[in-house]
Write a protein that binds this DNA or RNA. Sequence first.
DNA 1: TATGAATGAGCATTCATTCAT
DNA 2: AATGAATGAATGCTCATTCAT
Lengths: 185, 185, 185, 185
Amino acid sequence: MNKKSIVLQTTLELITKQGIQATSLSQIIKDSGVANGTVYHHFKNKEEIITELYLMLTQDFGTVVMRNIPEDDLKKQFTIMWHNLFDYFVNNPLAFVFSEQIARSPEIPQSLKDKARQYYNEIEAYFRKGIKDKVFKSYNTTVMEELFFGNVVSLVKIHENENVKLLDKHINQAIDISWKGFLRD
Amino acid sequence: MNKKSIVLQTTLELITKQGIQATSLSQIIKDSGVANGTVYHHFKNKEEIITELYLMLTQDFGTVVMRNIPEDDLKKQFTIMWHNLFDYFVNNPLAFVFSEQIARSPEIPQSLKDKARQYYNEIEAYFRKGIKDKVFKSYNTTVMEELFFGNVVSLVKIHENENVKLLDKHINQAIDISWKGFLRD
Amino acid sequence: MNKKSIVLQTTLELITKQGIQATSLSQIIKDSGVANGTVYHHFKNKEEIITELYLMLTQDFGTVVMRNIPEDDLKKQFTIMWHNLFDYFVNNPLAFVFSEQIARSPEIPQSLKDKARQYYNEIEAYFRKGIKDKVFKSYNTTVMEELFFGNVVSLVKIHENENVKLLDKHINQAIDISWKGFLRD
Amino acid sequence: MNKKSIVLQTTLELITKQGIQATSLSQIIKDSGVANGTVYHHFKNKEEIITELYLMLTQDFGTVVMRNIPEDDLKKQFTIMWHNLFDYFVNNPLAFVFSEQIARSPEIPQSLKDKARQYYNEIEAYFRKGIKDKVFKSYNTTVMEELFFGNVVSLVKIHENENVKLLDKHINQAIDISWKGFLRD
DNA sequence: TATGAATGAGCATTCATTCAT
DNA sequence: AATGAATGAATGCTCATTCAT
């Protein structure tokens, strides 16, 4: 494992623990056991470490959401999309931190934000089809996407922060709530 | 307007613009046109400014959500709660920033986080009643609260960030989706 | 003597010894026995220390050159101007360093360069009069000024660097050479 | 063109633009498109690059000043020496930068300074002869050399910095002034 | 000959905080 | 209540240089 990877890995751990802003370069340097200049040999500046990390973590994002989606059964598709996203965030806490911070943080460059928004396309297509198939009510798709995404985020937050142990049944309840909301009356 | 208020007001504006972490005390001092020591005369340290600001902004929070709630009509109550929360966040961007950051930020003391969770009590009571009245399905109330809250947040985010102009009809759609999700089949 | 003055004095000494570029802030801090932050309390940045120092040293520059200039005797005026400038540079090594660096250094802001060029006005007036009085040949005055100034600089350099002890007689020789060059044939 | 030459050429350009001190090795490396270690393969350290560059540029210096000097006509010799030096500096800006910085800069080793002073020998010999021939007044030759040299430098500075367009006539005026200064009364 | 990973001292600057007035 | 001088740890970053390949 080369120094560059060590730096990335250390940064990943620190950011997951403390957030982006609270993670200083000196801490990264200290924790990774790498020399000051070594970091700057591999990265132009602090931002580049974070950007690179972000790209590493999110390059599979788009594919992840749509992984193992079966054909033609809209409800099944919904459930699996939901699980895919939930599992992804649970297993990639940094990706979650990033996706939460993207909305506001000025330190994430716009290009990254744009890139992050690509995965919406497939989700949007999904909702469009649901509306066309008369399964979903014809809500605004941006609203639908945002609510869908937000619901997953809500559950991840419970998973992360609550003392309440989050059980499969709770997740299924959430998926149920989420799904029902979009249906035609 | 006394110096203390000026400091608080300046901090409010800066945090709303830049986030908590990005707002330094020196910037607060510079922007508020107040002397270094004056800030420390009124506040023990930086954290106290933020805490005080947070308390100022959130002390009305609990009452706000339950303002003008009519009796006995669960759907009407839901709609008004939803609007109350949405309007509150839209009109108090800092309260929104805080509520978003509370979940993760290590610099918000636990006591504040606990305090922030009080408003859940009334929302929880609401959902409990809905379940008892056989209007809502008997989902876990934590899940319900979190999804309800998250749905509002999602719309606020659209309101804030999207180029899409958020219309009343979109809000009504969101409320509709949100409400339907909780219903018994 | 307050800390600000100490910093300025220390910087003056260091720059005189080592030049501007070779003088680091940490050295200024170490030598002046002042805390890191104290420097930045008084000065916006390193450049401001140098600028302030420069303004302090050069504000008397214009008056210095024309000090004690007798009326009507062009030769006597020349001699005294020459001595004034020479003595000034010898007694204000930093002013000399600055005036030498002004021509090239990109780190001296243009405003300062402009200010420095003001003293030329009086010297130019002097040469103009000499030409009008038919004492000097009608050379281009910019050339005359630059050569006059350069001659003083040449002698200051000898004074500074040569192992040769610079005697009054050498200075008088230089003035003689300098003067004769401008005369009508 | 081998890597060593590329490094030298790049350094030459950077120093001419920015001065010696402002030119960092990393910049040289970046601009020359050469690897880090390659520089250190060819040069012991940064100083050696500058030294080598300096030697390259000044090895012809001595011969340049005395190029095409006719025999026996002291005035003609003076004029050509003057032009030689002026043209050399105008065409070799770096040589000019060096010659200007040599006097003060502590980073030019003494050995180089000594070497640079060799060309004075021939100029000194010239002035000695002028004095012996009773054309020049018997001024101190160091003073004469320094003034002669300084006069050329003054004109080069006008050439470089002034908005005033420097014409041949101005140069001839300068030579005239310079020459007359040294003459016997 | 050429490379580029690695180093750590050093740099200018910002930060939250203390304290005497 | 208000000021602002003073502090020094910490930050992000640049530097010249070494060394194994």
